[in-house]
Computed example of a mutant assay.
Amino acid sequence: MRVIAWLVEGTWPACVDAVRGHVPQTAEVVLVHVSGPDVPGLAHGAFAGLLGRGRSTGHRADGSWGSDPGDLMDALGAGSAAELLAAAAERLGRPCATEERSGRVEREVVAAAEGADLLVLARDGDRSRLGPKSLGPAVRFAVDHAPCPVLLVWPEPAPGLETIPPPPHHH
Rank of each mutant, 00 (worst) to 15 (best):
W154N: 05
R129P: 11
D17E: 14
H59T: 10
H59K: 03
E100A: 01
P166S: 07
T98G: 03
R101W: 04
H44L: 01
E108D: 09
L135F: 11
V32C: 09
E83M: 02
P69H: 11
T26A: 14
P132Q: 10
A27F: 01
A18K: 01
H170N: 02
R94N: 12
P157V: 01
D74C: 06
L130F: 08
V32G: 12
R94T: 05
S67Q: 02
V3A: 04
K133D: 11
G93F: 14
R2L: 05
S35M: 14
A146P: 03
G10D: 03
D126G: 00
L121H: 02
P155L: 00
V23P: 08
H171S: 11
T98K: 12
D74W: 08
D62P: 10
A88L: 11
L119Y: 06
P159F: 00
P37N: 10
R127K: 01
A14S: 06
L135I: 10
A88C: 04
P159Q: 05
H44A: 03
A86F: 00
G49P: 13
D126M: 01
G160W: 01
T11K: 12
G103V: 03
A43Y: 13
L51T: 08
A88R: 08
P147A: 14
F47R: 08
G49F: 09
L92A: 04
A14F: 00
A82R: 09
A82S: 07
S56V: 02
W12M: 02
L121N: 12
V23F: 14
E106A: 13
P40W: 05
P95Q: 13
S56G: 04
A27Y: 11
A43S: 02
D117I: 13
A116C: 13
P149D: 09
G49A: 12
D17W: 06
A14H: 13
C15D: 02
V3K: 00
A46P: 04
G10L: 08
A111T: 05
R2S: 06
A88I: 04
P165R: 15
S56T: 00
G63F: 13
H171E: 11
A112C: 08
V39N: 05
R129S: 11
R129N: 14
D124K: 10
I164L: 14
A75V: 01
A87P: 13
A122I: 07
S64I: 06
E156R: 12
P147F: 03
G66S: 04
V105R: 02
L85E: 11
E114K: 09
C148S: 09
P147L: 10
R127P: 01
A61S: 15
V19Y: 01
G125C: 06
G54V: 05
C15A: 15
H22R: 15
A113V: 08
T57S: 09
H169S: 01
G45L: 10
P167L: 15
G45W: 10
M73G: 04
A87W: 13
G66W: 07
